[in-house]
């Protein structure tokens, strides 16, 4: 059985690959990704083009590197939206547990969950026009109920704990208790959920840009690269494999990281190790 730390180490290692790629690409890219050079099209793997070139003659490595920027940025901000709106909603509902406010927030949650996320994302991007920003909004909205639900659930069990009662006896308000006692004890759960939503965001962004609703050309994105590759699958399978593997590595890395963090951050497990 894989030890928690092993899964954590693997996760970090895999996550570092796209992160480093994206960071380097801010300062330097092997080739310009906006420049089309048909005479250079479909070059095989070589020293100058480690992943070859695509059907417009663009360097695949450079496109993957810049594409990493897009994927990471979109997924990261979408998680941010989810945390920023979802966590306060969840804490709020837990604070007013059993009241109509709690009911209302949970109903809202169920409602958002009931909508087919992809269809609504398409609707949003169709209304507002396809762009990376609108993809962020579309993905981010569906992160809100996820974080609201998970923080409410965990907060509810914390509210049953006696240390919260003694804070109440000291006269602390619900808001204060939520920020001082509840939130810090939710952190580990939220961090784990954030890595999972991050990985789902990477997948969703790839899906949206595959059907042409994400980042627009000439900004490269992994999903768009796959869409372009589809017609060439028989000719140059490499065009589909490379961006696919990039997505898989990132998502796999984030999931392993989430699993590893879950074990490393859980105070229950930490306590039991001490004993």
């Amino acid at each position: 059985m894989i030890r928690p730390s092993t899964s954590l180490q693997f996760g970090i290692l895999l996550c570092l690959i796209p992160m480093i790629m994206a960071t380097i690409s801010f300062f330097w890219q092997p080739f310009d990704v906006t420049e089309l050079n048909i005479s250079n099209r479909l070059q095989p793997v070589s020293l100058t083009h480690p992943f070859g070139t695509d059907h417009f003659g663009r360097d695949m490595l450079s496109m993957i590197m810049v594409g990493a920027q897009t994927s990471i940025a979109v997924a990261f901000v979408a998680v941010g939206i989810g945390v920023l709106f979802g966590v306060p909603l969840g804490l709020f509902a837990a604070n007013w547990r059993g009241s109509f406010i709690d009911d209302g927030i949970m109903r809202f949650n169920d409602l958002v969950f009931a909508f087919p996320s992809l269809v609504i994302a398409i609707l949003i991007t169709a209304i507002a026009g396809p762009s990376a920003f609108n993809a962020i909004v579309a993905i981010g909205i569906f992160n809100i109920p996820v974080f609201a639900r998970i923080s409410r659930g965990a907060a509810l069990s914390l509210w049953q704990r006696e240390f919260i009662l003694s804070a109440q006896v000291a006269g602390k308000t619900g808001l204060r208790i939520s920020t001082e006692h509840v939130l810090p004890n939710l952190m580990h759960i939220l961090i784990v959920q954030a890595t999972i939503q991050f990985s789902l965001g990477i997948l969703a962004e790839a899906g949206l840009s595959y059907i042409g609703l994400g980042a627009q050309p000439p900004t490269p994105s992994w999903g768009r690269m796959l869409a372009d590759a589809q017609t060439m699958v028989s000719l140059a399978p490499r065009l589909a494999i490379v961006p696919g593997v990039a997505i898989i590595i990132t998502v796999l890395g984030l999931n392993l990281l989430g699993d590893g963090l879950r074990d490393a951050l859980d105070p229950k497990l930490r306590g039991s190790m001490k004993k």
Binding site: E162, L165, N185
Partner: peptide
Amino acid sequence: VVFQDPYGSFNP
């Protein structure tokens, strides 16, 4: 107040 549960009474 002093509660029963010596584990649940404190913010970890």
